[in-house]
C-alpha cells in the first residue's frame, strides 16, 4: 500500500461513483425487489468438517425483505407452534431455506427458481383475493389459499404448479425444522448421545411390536 494519500483523477472518480451507484441498486433490489443473484462459491471438496456452521457462512443469503416475510409466514403456517414444539420462525427455518435457495449448486438453483416463483405467486394470490401480502393475511385467509394447494394429488389444474411449489417448500421447511434440537425433541429423535452400551429396545417398544 502506498502510504501517501493520492488525489483521484477524473476517470477513477467516475469509476468509484459508478460502483457506489451499482451497490445502491443491488441494495434496493435486495430490500424491495427481486432477490439478489447467486454470487457465492461452493464449499469445495475439502471443507473443514469439524466445525458448527450457520446459514450464510459459506455463501451470502439472498432473500429480499418481502420474500423473507413470506417465507416466515408460510413456514409458520406449515409448522406452527403447538404443545410440543415452537413455530418454525422461532427455530430459524427461514434461514435454512434462504441458505438452500442461495446455494451455488445446480440442484439448489433449480429449487430456487421454483421457490421464488412460488412465493411471488402466493403474494399475487393474496393480493387478488384479499388485497394484502401473504404475510399480512389472517391465519384463516392464509389457510384459504393453502387449502387449494396443499394436497398435490387433489390440486385442480389451475393450481397444479402452485401445489408443486407448496410440496417442495414443505419438504424444505420440514428438512430445516426437524434438523434442529427443537425439531428432534418434537419428533422423538433421542440419539447423538454417547453411551457405554447399546441396549436392546425398551420393554414398551418390544411389547408394542409383539416381541
Amino acid at each position: 500500500m502506498d502510504p501517501k494519500p493520492t488525489k483521484l483523477n477524473r476517470r477513477e472518480a467516475i469509476k468509484l461513483v459508478a460502483a457506489a451507484t451499482a451497490s445502491i441498486t443491488v441494495l434496493q433490489q435486495k430490500t424491495f425487489g427481486a432477490a439478489a443473484t447467486i454470487a457465492g462459491q461452493p464449499y469445495g471438496v475439502d471443507p473443514l468438517l469439524n466445525k458448527a456452521y450457520k446459514s450464510g457462512d459459506f455463501w451470502p443469503l439472498t432473500l429480499n425483505t418481502e420474500q423473507r416475510a413470506t417465507v416466515l409466514a408460510l413456514t409458520d403456517l406449515i409448522l406452527p407452534a403447538d404443545d410440543k414444539s415452537p413455530a418454525a420462525s422461532e427455530v430459524g427455518t427461514v434461514d435454512f431455506i434462504d441458505e438452500w435457495i442461495s446455494a451455488p449448486y445446480e440442484g439448489q438453483r433449480r429449487d430456487r427458481q421454483q421457490i421464488l416463483d412460488g412465493l411471488a405467486w402466493l403474494n399475487q394470490q393474496s393480493e387478488n383475493r384479499f388485497s394484502k401480502k401473504f404475510a399480512d393475511l389472517t391465519l384463516k385467509e392464509q389457510s384459504a389459499i393453502a387449502d387449494d394447494i396443499c394436497y398435490l394429488d387433489q390440486a385442480s389444474d389451475k393450481y397444479r404448479i402452485a401445489a408443486e411449489f407448496f410440496a417442495s417448500f414443505r419438504n424444505l421447511a420440514a428438512g430445516g425444522y426437524y434438523a434442529t434440537s427443537q425439531g428432534w425433541l418434537d419428533i422423538g429423535y433421542v440419539g447423538n448421545l454417547p453411551t457405554d452400551k447399546f441396549e436392546v429396545p425398551p420393554q414398551e417398544v418390544l411389547k408394542k411390536l409383539g416381541l
Binding site: L77, I78, P80, K84, A146, C150, R170, N171, G175, A179
Partner: peptide, 23 residues
C-alpha cells in the same frame, strides 16, 4: 437423525397438508 427429505416419504403417504395435523 432427521435430515432433509424427512417429510417426503411421509407426505407421499398422507398426501400433504400443513399445520398441526402435518406435525
Amino acid at each position: 437423525m432427521p435430515k432433509p427429505g424427512i417429510a417426503e416419504n411421509i407426505t407421499n403417504i398422507t398426501g400433504g397438508g400443513y399445520g398441526k395435523r402435518f406435525k
